[in-house]
């Protein structure tokens, strides 16, 4: 018993948790100097390109800084924040971002789950399904945009011709303010579904087989098995998938920039595109920094919700 305890402590010391027991091999004073050497490259880069810019961005957000002028160009106080919170462009961009998130998250999570479920039941040819669903995810957004703009092309595109054949009048997919966002969402579902599919497939394979066998012995049909075993067992995966999905959707920029340029008439401009427009087209760096900070708060809030959910789940399990 006592040897076991000491072995346990030994391992903990290695893992860096409460290094209590003095150790002969490494001396008692710790590894301050070599550790600093190992940490230095990361920490220096981290300070230069994450922490430093974050602080600098915060400072910029209180100034009238311009892309084409040196220096901070005078302090604006809370002016940039006031302008953002009082501007229709900011709120509509935020809404477009949320609307895109609402349109993409449920289908991406649900379809990802369903297709993984089906693929898990199929014994052969799983590589084919993984290829079909995951291959789009590996493509650059620019490639996806080129392909889908061609599919959406009025009159000549594959979608319009197919719909015309069955006697339907297709909408102007990317040209109509009401349809543009759903069209971008469809493209995005096609593009990124593979990611969630793979996560769910991995989650499914971790569920012990005997659980299903026992349920089958009790006379549970496939549907009951899914409801009483699969879905509860995948709870944690679903939280992960949903939160990663929400955060990825909030950060949307590529699809709009490439396929609609935020149009028609700004109907699909996302919050990141507003940052791009204000900072790099209008040169208003200070204002763009303020919008970035407000956007960061939104992402932080979502992350906080995730942490709370994970905490709760861990307590339950």
């Amino acid at each position: 018993m006592s040897t076991q305890t000491s072995a346990q402590t030994d391992t903990d010391a290695h893992r860096g948790i409460a290094p209590t027991a003095p150790r002969a091999s490494a001396g008692t004073l710790g590894h301050g100097r070599p550790a600093a050497g190992f940490l230095a490259p990361f920490v220096v880069l981290y300070l230069l390109f994450i922490i430093g810019p974050a602080v600098y961005g915060l400072i910029l957000s209180f100034t009238n800084a311009s892309l084409v002028k040196p220096g901070l160009n005078g302090f604006a106080g809370l002016g940039n924040y006031g302008e953002a919170l009082g501007s229709a462009a900011f709120w509509s961009s935020l809404w477009h971002t949320l609307w895109f998130t609402i349109l993409t998250t449920p289908p991406l999570v649900i379809l990802g789950f369903l297709l993984a479920l089906l693929a898990n039941r199929v014994a052969r040819g799983r590589w084919f399904f993984r290829l079909a669903f995951f291959a789009p995810y590996i493509l650059p957004s620019a490639v996806v945009a080129l392909i889908w703009m061609w599919l959406y092309t009025p009159a000549l595109g594959l979608l319009d011709t197919a719909l015309a054949k069955v006697g339907m009048t297709p909408p102007s997919w990317l040209g109509d303010a009401a349809w543009a966002m759903p069209s971008l969402a469809i493209t995005t579902v096609w593009w990124t579904l593979g990611f969630n599919f793979v996560l769910y497939l991995a989650g499914l394979q971790e569920i012990p087989r005997d659980l299903y066998e026992a349920a089958a012995m009790d006379g549970a049909g496939p549907w009951q098995q899914i409801r009483s075993i699969t879905i509860p067992m995948l709870g944690r995966t679903t939280t992960l998938v949903a939160v990663l999905q929400v955060i990825a959707s909030l950060k949307v920029f590529d699809q709009m920039y490439l396929m609609t340029a935020g149009g028609p008439n700004f109907a699909t401009r996302s919050i990141l595109q507003l940052v791009y427009d204000e900072g790099f087209t209008n040169f208003r760096v200070g204002y763009a920094a303020a919008v970035s900070m407000l956007f960061f708060l939104v992402v932080l809030a979502v992350s906080a919700v995730w942490f709370t959910l994970v905490r709760r789940q861990e307590k339950v399990v």
């Binding site: 981290y46 390109f49 994450i50 922490i51 430093g52 810019p53 974050a54 600098y56 961005g57 910029l60 800084a65 892309l67 955060i247 950060k251 920029f253 990141l272 940052v275 791009y276 900072g279 790099f280 760096v285 763009a288 920094a289 970035s292 900070m293 956007f295 960061f296 992402v299 932080l300 992350s303």
Partner: peptide
């Protein structure tokens, strides 16, 4: 904590840097 900071919110200071 760095995981929490998406690079996209840093594009403005990065560019100046």
């Amino acid at each position: 904590a760095g995981i929490m900071i998406p690079g996209q919110v840093l594009i403005v200071p990065w560019f100046r840097e």
